[in-house]
Nucleic acid binder design. Structure first.
Lengths: 254, 254
DNA sequence: CGCTACTGTTCCGCAATACAGAACGCCATT
DNA sequence: AATGGCGTTCTGTATTGCGGAACAGTAGCG
């Protein structure tokens, strides 16, 4: 890897080794996972711990992520404070729709969930703030892609797009049509394209430069997001996205 | 610094150079700020960018934080998913109190805001998720400290505690009395101890091992959190914290 | 247009740093 | 007591990360 500092790369790989399934990891396990010597891993952890990115559990002598990662990460999600500005609109959308709602942004050919408010339903889409999802088969993703520049969209359509369900669109011609529909309708629908039984509707947020900077979406089980309910939800999500766009100094283009 | 890898330390210092005031920074500026050569900084940025922790704005050739930091940071805030479990209680507390509410946790002698839901009031406490505040003069902080082990509290009280307002308690004897009051009342009050004009009430969240793992708080201007309103807010915050504790498998100790 | 100033990027020699292996200290199990 | 496993410390050395210089590009000015 040209120009990449190996020790920095290793340190970041350490950070990325932690997960929901593995919140706490020991030196030896990290050593095996990363293919580095134990003393190397120990030094990396010591360096990360010195600034609060990881912390050691004194009872188990294992390490977990520290709050410094959260602090820096919160700044990254700020991104011109989109998240803060959109929060009240996300909230009122959840209250109106009575379903879980998400705020997502485009990053490296994927959508990243940067906020989420869960409904009170016991049965709902599993998602995690900070996680990613594909662009081509999620409502959030499609409503982010639809307003990208044509050359970007063509580059995107040239990538291998994975099929998740029989409904997933992977052919460029199909997706071009879908994106055109989204631009006309001003919202996107995921009809079990990403996961069977899961439907979402989403609409884009525009900022002052008329660019889509995020997307708001309603997600839930297909049994609840039924065909007679979807037009109402689409209208809600469009209204919330338009209101959030105005708060961002933008307008939905006519 | 013994045992700390210099290049890793430098990379983390780069990450911490970004702020709300400076979301985008150039190589030369970072070089001056950090006291490192430009090519060193460039290499650090390249390494961080390779894994998505920073990204380069191609229009300005300057760098900003990338979403990888957010992804890793979101895991750090997960912390046994306290944040997710507490979210609905935080929300209903905001709706009941009609003031901004926070969720905070103890880290390195400070409270870290890990969640926040703002009220619709145009005038409210300024805070940011991911930021820190002192323990001894905030309601969130005090309600976290009050249930720590005695030896920890004594160590804490031996630290130099800064005075922010004429109301700030900094003397160990004063703070011991205050913490005892909090344990009896089961909530903490910040009566303009951190900032003039700002009041907060907060109550602790207990988990299944009877330890305080977070704290819920209501914050607002003193003009709104008036003395006749505070008992009601204290009751609300206690109820919400108790309910969130139960969701965490804990109980408020009697 | 040429010059200056400033930026981010690339190149290169070399000293310092990061590396891995071995040893150590501690704990739990047999 | 011996063994096994862990995290931590130590050490020699190869390699890596460093800074300075040069480069490439852009903007502003006379």
């Amino acid at each position: 890897m040209a120009g990449v500092l190996r020790s920095v790369n290793n340190a970041l790989a350490v950070l990325e080794s932690f997960s929901v399934e593995r919140p706490e990891i020991g030196v030896t396990e990290l050593s095996q996972t990363l293919g580095l010597g134990k003393s190397t891993v120990h030094r990396l952890l010591t360096s990360l711990a010195a600034r609060g990115y990881v912390r050691k559990n004194p009872e188990t002598d294992r390490y977990c992520l520290g709050f410094k990662a959260f602090e820096v990460g919160s700044l990254a999600a700020g991104r011109g404070a989109i998240r803060d500005i959109a929060a009240p609109f996300l909230r009122s959308l959840m209250l109106a729709a009575k379903e879980t709602v998400h705020l997502g942004v485009l990053d490296e050919w994927e959508v990243v969930y940067i906020d989420k408010i869960e409904s009170d339903h016991p049965f709902q889409m599993y998602s995690r703030v900070g996680r990613r999802a594909p662009l081509h088969c999620t409502a959030l993703g499609k409503s982010l892609v639809a307003w990208e520049p044509d050359d970007w969209i063509e580059r995107f359509l040239r990538r291998r797009l994975r099929s998740y369900t029989p409904s997933t669109l992977t052919e460029p011609a199909d997706l071009r049509r879908e994106l055109a529909k989204i631009r006309t309708a001003r919202y996107a629908l995921d009809g079990e394209e990403f996961a069977l039984g899961l439907k979402c509707v989403a609409a884009p947020l525009f900022d002052h430069s008329r660019r889509v900077v995020a997307s708001l979406g309603i997600a839930g089980p297909a049994v609840r997001l039924s065909n007679d309910r979807l037009p109402r939800l689409a209208a809600l999500v469009r209204e919330s996205a338009a209101a959030a766009s105005r708060a961002l100094g933008g307008e939905v283009p006519v």
